[in-house]
Amino acid sequence: MSYIIPVIILLILAYGHLKGVKVYEAFIEGAVEGMNITLKIFPYIVAMLMAIAMLRCSGGLDFILYILKPVTAFIGLPAEVVPLVIMKPLSGSGALGILADILKRVGADSYPGVLASVIMSSTETIFYTITVYFGSVGIRNIRHTLAAALIAEVTGVVASVMICSRFF
């Protein structure tokens, strides 16, 4: 699947070209946005990498993983990926910091590295989204939203494990 990235880029650029988009100028415009987005998420990565590094080398993380072991072993979740699964529903940028830490330590192409990347892209920051979306229109009774969203989130994690373990 190593051709997937060049193919996607070519397809999008070709479609834009056919539609008369000034592809080079549009690309630069987007790249500037990309630079600003990275600048914005950078502080979150710093904060989260620091906290997770402290937690790991103090032995605190081992303790938390030990407590969660019965659940994670049941799903087949490698210990390295557990902090990501806990963080992702709460904060996207926090989860990004943790994913960065995982990829750096176990390698982006290892099984836990790939699994973490897949979980990161197939689940969402549900607590954050629910708070902001309902908060913005003043809704207090969210009824079954959280339950259904959590079911979706857990399904995403379990499906990620089932799919990724097939590739390794």
């Binding site: 479609y15 056919l18 690309f27 990309g34």
Partner: peptide, 13 residues
């Protein structure tokens, strides 16, 4: 920068 650039083309097209 790469992906936001490519996606901007997708958006404009």
């Amino acid at each position: 920068m790469l992906w936001c650039g490519v996606l901007k083309v997708a958006e404009k097209s």
